[in-house]
Simulated scan of single mutants.
Amino acid sequence: EVKAIALPGAIVQIAVATALGWGLSQLLGWSHGAGIVFGLALSVASTVVLLRALEERRLVETYRGRIAVGWLIVEDLAMVLALVLLPALAEVLRGEGGGMSDVGGALLGTFLKVGGFVAFMLIIGRRV
């Protein structure tokens, strides 16, 4: 219902906050990798804190409340993806990685592992 607002809004907000964090890190003399991680950390809102505030004000069931919850879900999913990909991209972010083939191989391996885990949980997890 709110995906037309929450999805692009959260993606733009994550991109802008990450870029601002990266920019600040460059002013402080940090590496590009550290700046990206710092920016990603700045881009995440606390789901629990915002939900509690919405509940206290009885706004969860309102249209704005649903937008906020949808936005938080998109942010959380994006951060899960970022946290899964960070180890695979760590060498590149440090400037030690090989070429694009190394990056592609690392990403492919990570996606295969995540896909295997999800498949395992959906098939075995339901039965257990």
Results as ranks from 00 to 15, higher is better:
23 G>A: 14
19 A>P: 03
38 F>E: 11
70 G>L: 05
18 T>A: 08
125 G>A: 02
61 E>Q: 13
43 S>R: 04
69 V>C: 02
82 A>T: 06
34 A>S: 13
108 L>W: 12
73 I>W: 00
41 A>S: 15
6 A>Y: 01
20 L>P: 01
53 A>M: 11
54 L>M: 13
7 L>D: 09
57 R>K: 13
93 L>C: 10
124 I>K: 06
108 L>H: 06
46 S>W: 03
17 A>F: 08
100 M>R: 06
43 S>H: 04
54 L>G: 08
80 V>G: 01
89 L>K: 06
59 L>S: 10
110 T>M: 08
38 F>T: 15
17 A>Q: 08
117 F>C: 04
16 V>C: 01
76 D>R: 01
50 L>M: 14
105 G>L: 13
8 P>Q: 11
4 A>N: 12
117 F>Q: 04
16 V>S: 03
82 A>F: 13
77 L>H: 07
99 G>V: 12
18 T>P: 04
38 F>S: 11
44 V>E: 08
16 V>Q: 07
32 H>E: 09
117 F>D: 00
66 R>K: 14
106 A>I: 08
37 V>D: 05
101 S>H: 05
68 A>H: 02
92 V>W: 11
18 T>R: 02
22 W>P: 00
121 M>R: 01
44 V>W: 00
56 E>D: 14
121 M>V: 04
127 R>H: 11
9 G>R: 04
110 T>S: 12
2 V>T: 12
30 W>I: 05
85 L>P: 07
54 L>N: 08
121 M>G: 00
9 G>M: 06
117 F>L: 14
76 D>Q: 05
123 I>T: 10
113 K>W: 06
33 G>W: 10
13 Q>N: 14
96 E>A: 14
40 L>K: 09
102 D>A: 15
73 I>D: 01
40 L>G: 09
2 V>P: 00
31 S>R: 15
35 G>D: 05
57 R>T: 09
33 G>N: 13
71 W>K: 00
88 A>K: 08
13 Q>P: 00
65 G>V: 06
10 A>P: 03
26 Q>D: 03
94 R>D: 14
30 W>D: 12
100 M>L: 15
48 V>W: 01
81 L>H: 13
96 E>N: 15
61 E>P: 01
88 A>W: 04
66 R>T: 03
58 R>Y: 10
10 A>H: 03
124 I>T: 08
54 L>I: 10
69 V>F: 06
60 V>S: 09
22 W>I: 05
37 V>F: 05
26 Q>G: 00
4 A>Y: 12
